[in-house]
Design a protein around this nucleic acid. Structure first.
Lengths: 136, 136
DNA sequence: ATAATATCCGTACCATACTACGGAGTCAAG
DNA sequence: CTTGACTCCGTAGTATGGTACGGATATTAT
């Protein structure tokens, strides 16, 4: 069983120690076990959770949203409906994000292609075509 | 030709007037024309740009990144290579985002399905499987 | 065994992205 | 023709998500 001190796990995921303490403070990360010296000790499940947090942040989710995503689990039969409801909401949001990112991808590919072919300049913003694809 | 006062265009895209003034201050939005009273007057191209900004923000891009995306245009042949380079970078980032969001989508769909079938509880976080998909 | 490095904690500071305030001028409706 | 809503501007305050500081212990390397 692999264990990490705070500096080790922080380095592993590319954040710094203070940030990890901050995540603990706001309850995004659970309080870890301590050894006699009061040093924090993390295990692989902490590493997994932390990796998710870091990547979800890069994907543009707020810490609050990440917390909600991590809370999506069926703990008692009574909360099953709630979980489903929230998950459907998140799913909807994610589908829209994917769709809009796909539009951006298309535009960027077109733009790169134009650049490659040394086409003549335009004074417009190609990226704004994303909006044209989306609205009307 | 449709024209808007600051309050009208702000309402149209769902931000408030101060935010729009802020975007102008940081040069994310261009300085608009003024009528005699010094009131700002916006047109449809401003609306288009503003809609892009708002959605890109929701997608998790910072205002700086949005500025870069909006600056991606071929103005002189000399900048063509630069534009291509930046666009390729952005494209790469966007592709990775889409891929990870797809993972999340799969997990959420599975979770919703489990909820629908009233399956038994688990004390784990289903969403963390996203990480398992990514790191072998 | 002692120096360098890591961790502890609380608190203060920082950047980004707004949001509110307040006094003055402008415009539109009754 | 005035009253209420809108806009002007600068400046100050707020929320989120960290980052830095600094003195005290703990651990590790030489």
């Amino acid at each position: 069983m692999e264990l990490f001190k705070v500096g080790e796990i922080a380095k592993e995921v590319g954040i710094n120690v203070e940030t990890l303490r901050y995540y603990e403070k706001i309850k995004l990360m659970p309080k870890p076990k301590r050894i006699e010296s009061r040093y924090r000790i993390y295990d692989v499940s902490d590493l997994r959770r932390l990796r998710f947090i870091v990547r979800a942040k890069e994907l543009g989710f707020t810490l609050k949203e990440i917390h909600e995503l991590l809370s999506l689990k069926i703990e008692k039969s009574s909360t099953c409906g709630d979980v489903k409801h929230i998950a459907e909401h998140k799913l909807d949001d994610i589908k829209k994000r994917i769709s809009d990112l796909n539009s951006m991808q298309n535009i960027l590919e077109k733009l790169i292609d134009q650049c490659t072919n040394e086409e003549l300049s335009t004074d417009v913003c190609p990226i704004l075509e994303v909006i044209d694809e989306k609205f009307q």
